[in-house]
Design a protein around this nucleic acid. Structure first.
Length: 354
DNA sequence: AACTCCCCCAACCGCGGTCTC
DNA sequence: TGAGACCGCGGTTGGGGGAGT
């Protein structure tokens, strides 16, 4: 193991990206679409490793990233999902499409961990261990307890999915959706301007780059599909919608992930276990939405959304799924929180973890 | 005003998983 | 089938900037 780092070559630049580099990268992606990162440095002349390029794109330059403060809803969702999924930031990020996994991770580490820890020490009246909430919340839950909860979650997810697949279920219009579950594509158009208030001068400039991409995604056929790089982060990466299904890959650039996405997209009619897997494993779930572009205007998003989510196979309710999932997450939250607390307390009692 | 401390977040690192040949 | 290449993820770092003194 221990593959040598990809960036230890002499002459590879590290550190903060400059606007010039960003423009070069964005221009290249505009032309070729994201993916095939290996080729990016050589083709662009950027003195960056492929990884750095990918990271810069996925965490910063790609369209639709919301910056700035997390809403209460996002915060609760993160807390809840973290308790459920652990530190699987990419998975968590798939529920918060405007946020990158890195953002969520940072937010957790810098805010939520402390906040919950404080809350916990406040309610429990004695200090907790110093190993952080993440570990206390997720690691302290014994595997058995976690699995028990998971069983319950599976049941709830199945119920939600059944409801979601029910034909009687009214279509959920995008503007009725919860802002965070709404994949951000409705709000995307606003996001750049909104977020600009919380970003640095340079960040603003990159947002401008992202804004430029708005038009690009709409106009460029190539950008539509390629997406390998963004697939795993799926929801986050809604710039790949243009062909309406991720069915076309960028010529020779089709990557494994692209194929996986296509496969996922073709698996819309899921059996329940798969559906569950999609809900928790997220890949399928994500990819079904990965085409949705945050680069769309709200109106475009609505129509696209309706076109692709409501008529496409039994996939109808991508948003409905999301909505139900959230419903499941939050309407049930009190119960779950109670369970979590109980579990944590149980752990505390039985394992003296705190 | 100068200095120190602390926080935040962009970026890096290393590993595991997957794909290709 | 196995080795190498590539990608994505999660943990960690460190520089910039704000807050406090």
């Amino acid at each position: 193991m221990g593959r040598p780092p990809c960036c230890d070559k002499v002459g590879v630049k590290k550190g903060p990206w400059t606007p010039e580099e960003d423009i070069i990268l964005v221009s290249y992606i505009q032309e070729h679409g994201p993916g095939n990162w290996r080729a990016v440095p050589s083709n662009t002349g950027l003195l960056r490793c492929s990884k750095s390029c990918r990271l810069r794109w996925t965490n910063y330059l790609r369209p639709g990233i919301k910056r700035g403060n997390f809403t209460d809803h996002e915060e609760k969702m993160i807390i809840h999902l973290q308790a459920l999924l652990g530190n699987r930031w990419a998975a968590i990020a798939s529920y918060l499409p405007q946020r990158t996994d890195n953002d969520i991770k940072n937010y957790w580490n810098t805010h939520l961990k402390k906040k919950l820890k404080k809350l916990q020490t406040g309610t429990e009246g004695h200090e907790s261990r110093d190993d952080g909430l993440s570990s206390s919340a997720s690691q302290s839950i014994s595997r058995g307890q976690w699995e028990r909860r998971l069983q319950t979650d599976i049941h709830l997810a199945k119920q939600a999915l059944c409801e979601a697949l029910s034909p009687e279920k009214p279509n959920i219009l995008p503007d009725q959706l919860n802002p965070t579950s709404n994949i951000g594509f409705m709000n995307f158009a606003k996001s750049a301007s909104q977020s600009s208030s919380t970003t640095t001068t340079y960040a603003s400039s990159t947002e401008n780059i992202a804004k430029l991409l708005k038009g690009w995604v709409r106009n460029s056929p190539k950008s539509a599909s390629s997406n390998s790089a963004v697939t795993q982060q799926s929801f986050n990466n809604n710039n790949n919608f243009a062909d309406g299904g991720g069915t076309e890959s960028t010529s020779s650039d089709e990557t494994p992930s692209t194929k996986a996405d296509n496969k996922d997209n073709n698996n819309n009619c899921m059996e329940l276990p798969e559906a569950f897997e999609s809900l928790f494993g997220l890949e399928s779930f994500d990819s079904s939405n990965s085409e949705l572009s945050q680069s769309m205007s709200p109106d475009e998003s609505c129509s696209f959304f309706e076109d692709h989510c409501l008529h496409d196979c039994k996939q109808e309710p991508t948003t409905a799924q999301m909505s139900l999932l959230e419903k499941w997450l939050f309407e049930d939250q009190q119960v779950k929180d109670y369970n979590l607390i109980s579990d944590l307390k149980l752990d505390e009692n039985t394992h003296n973890i705190f």
